[in-house]
Amino acid sequence: MSKGIIISPDKCTGCRTCELACSFMKHDNFNPKDAAISVLAFDEVGLQVPMTCLQCDDPHCVAVCPVNALEKDENTGVVNHDREKCIGCKMCVSACPFGNMTYSSRLKQVIKCDECGGDPQCVKLCPSGAIVYKELDSSMERRRNIASCFKEAFGEVIR
């Protein structure tokens, strides 16, 4: 069964180590803008929400890509982005229902989480366990992991 990144906002301290880890891993710099994961702060309730690609089952980004640079890997469940194939039309950026794809004009590329090919560095360095990488064995468990009302709110698009 496929593995995935599971987010628990209740554990997140907002240290943003994940952002730096991602940026350094992928682009050799410490720029949160280049990271495929970002932490959104909700101070009024004291919660921090790390957001990254959810590797949807029916990805909108894949549907709009004109050159098949985005492909869903059926074995790992990851939606992979092929940088060499990408022509930078930015369709995927406006198509993603969760805004988890960004485009960096400085790097001239789309920034998207690929779970580091099975070894996500953000998870490795997260000090509080707010993001974990584990098996998503059954649809029931998935539903519990990614909070259930989140699923209701967005319909079947989420894995």
Binding site: L40, C96, P97, G99, N100
Partner: peptide, 10 residues
Amino acid sequence: RKKIAADKLK
């Protein structure tokens, strides 16, 4: 969109 999604999760 990201903010909306995070807000729902929150």
